[in-house]
Write a protein that binds this DNA or RNA. Structure first.
Lengths: 124, 124
DNA sequence: CCTTGACTTCAACATATGTTGAAGGCCGAG
DNA sequence: CTCGGCCTTCAACATATGTTGAAGTCAAGG
């Protein structure tokens, strides 16, 4: 198998390549690795090499941050992903993230709803 | 009108009272005032006095932060509230906040949905 | 009036989320 | 084998969101 630039499932991508693919700065990629959002192997010389899922995880993380999840929380959700995850594994992570986002939105609605229904939570 | 502790619509509450009512530290109340979440008048001696809406705004702000809104964004939404807001005014703010939360959740769903539908956004 | 608890400001610290710059090392194309 | 570009680490800076402590002031009950 003489794949040159793209060996799926292998740790071949540099920090810069992942950064470009994810739309973030290389420094952010290092930050995310440090915090468990992505994994990297190292070359003999000490350089990071990422697999194809890395940019994806980072893109998902950026969107998840917008709904109020912290990097730590996102890393915990991702921790359930096996190495080389299948679509189904991603599906479960997706459910988890969406459920969390909806729970938080529901909390907001509940609070604002109580407020409007004249419950004296907010004596305006 | 001999109201002692509670003159609705007036700026009579101390920072500590608002903090207790909102369930946050006094330092947080000062922080929120500094950033436009709440308003305060000052006594002749320079102490803050808040009205009844202050604790409410802070409670709403805390819930809104959980869905990813920043203090600045929340302050901007609250900026639409007139002094001494009516239930209807709060209703509009509530709609605004909920719409924002749902938009962000929708973005998350869309991204994760695209991912699962095999669009090569995420070459896992 | 006077005491005492709550208030004031300001600076430092703390955590989360990154960016930037310096000093140096790795690696692949030629 | 060498060179230029990307990589490394580390420290400092930056912003957001607060907390804590010191030093001093205000206000309300007795």
């Amino acid at each position: 198998m003489a794949t040159v630039t793209h060996d799926i499932g292998a740790y071949t991508l540099t920090v810069g390549e992942v950064a470009a693919a994810a739309g973030v700065a290389p420094s952010a990629v290092r930050f995310y690795e440090e915090h468990g959002i992505v994994r990297a192997e190292r070359t003999a010389g000490g350089q990071r090499r990422f697999d194809d899922g890395a940019a994806c995880r980072i893109r998902v993380a950026k969107v998840a941050q917008r709904v109020g999840l912290t990097v730590r929380e996102i890393a915990e959700v991702f921790a359930d992903l096996p190495p080389d995850p299948q679509p189904q594994d991603w599906g479960e992570v997706a459910e988890h993230l969406i459920a969390e986002a909806e729970a938080r939105t529901a909390a907001l609605k509940a609070y604002l709803g109580d407020m409007r229904s004249g419950a004296k939570l907010c004596e305006l």
